[in-house]
């Protein structure tokens, strides 16, 4: 089979692409988490101007296509600021900023689903508001948000392929490079699709395992899978 020898020959190159795709996905997830949680807290507990600012942020990043955001930051914002970052950094940043907007809504729902009485109880025990948020609300809210949050992984994974447009050497880019060198189209595209699907479902298995680990028995952290 010709395809097998081609895949063997280009295997290491594709593996590198897988690493970059996963790198993009994981750094975007992490950035989205680090930014999304404060955004959610600001949207629930912040003052009115803070809340409206965050609402605008979320509206902007959720309303624009990934491709437009990538073009905007790669050709526009970063060069205008005089920042000369690699395409990978820009791709991960854009996916992360966008992910933060989505994640903030997941965390906000989680925070709001913790019963209000818990805040009152914490305050009456002499905790400050911040202590209560940190030690009482967040640990529960994060567990409640986990199932929704896990769905960000396949979203970001498939979205990361769009970074092809700014030339990040991830799986999609490398696939089309191999296609243009070997002139084999369909088998290589299908192989790439199967790799993406394997990454998708393999990753989800790992995440579901993690969900089980973080679950507190009897605490309804496991929500219905969509």
């Amino acid at each position: 089979m010709e395809i097998l020898s081609v895949l063997l020959e280009w295997g290491p190159y594709l593996l590198g692409g897988i690493a970059i795709t996963l790198g993009l996905t994981i750094s975007a997830l992490a950035l989205g988490f680090c930014l999304g949680l404060p955004l959610a807290l600001g949207q629930v507990y912040g003052s009115r101007p803070v809340r409206s600012l965050i609402a605008v942020y979320v509206w902007f990043f959720r309303g624009l296509p990934t491709l437009i955001l990538l073009f905007l930051f790669y050709f526009g914002v970063f060069p205008a600021l005089g920042l000369d970052f690699s395409a990978f950094v820009i791709g991960a940043t854009v996916l992360g900023l966008r992910g933060a907007a989505y994640q903030s809504q997941i965390f906000r729902a989680g925070i709001q689903s913790v019963a209000e009485g818990q805040m009152t109880a914490a305050l009456s025990l002499g905790m400050t508001r911040w202590e209560a948020v940190q030690c009482i609300i967040i640990p529960q809210a994060l567990r409640i948000s986990l199932p929704g949050w896990s769905n960000e992984y396949p979203e970001l994974l498939t979205d990361s392929a769009v970074c092809y447009a700014i030339g990040v050497a991830e799986l999609m880019t490398r696939t089309s490079q191999i296609v243009s060198v070997t002139y084999m189209t369909m088998p290589i595209y299908i192989a790439c699709a199967l790799i993406f699907i394997a990454l998708n479902y393999g990753g989800m298995r790992v995440i579901r395992k993690a969900e089980e680990r973080f679950a507190i028995p009897g605490f309804g952290g496991k929500a219905v899978q969509p």
């Binding site: 396949p154 994974l157 392929a161 769009v162 790439c192 699709a193």
Partner: peptide, 9 residues
């Protein structure tokens, strides 16, 4: 297949 495969691909 179609949820796992990136739309661009």
């Amino acid at each position: 297949f179609f949820k796992g495969c990136p739309l661009l691909l």
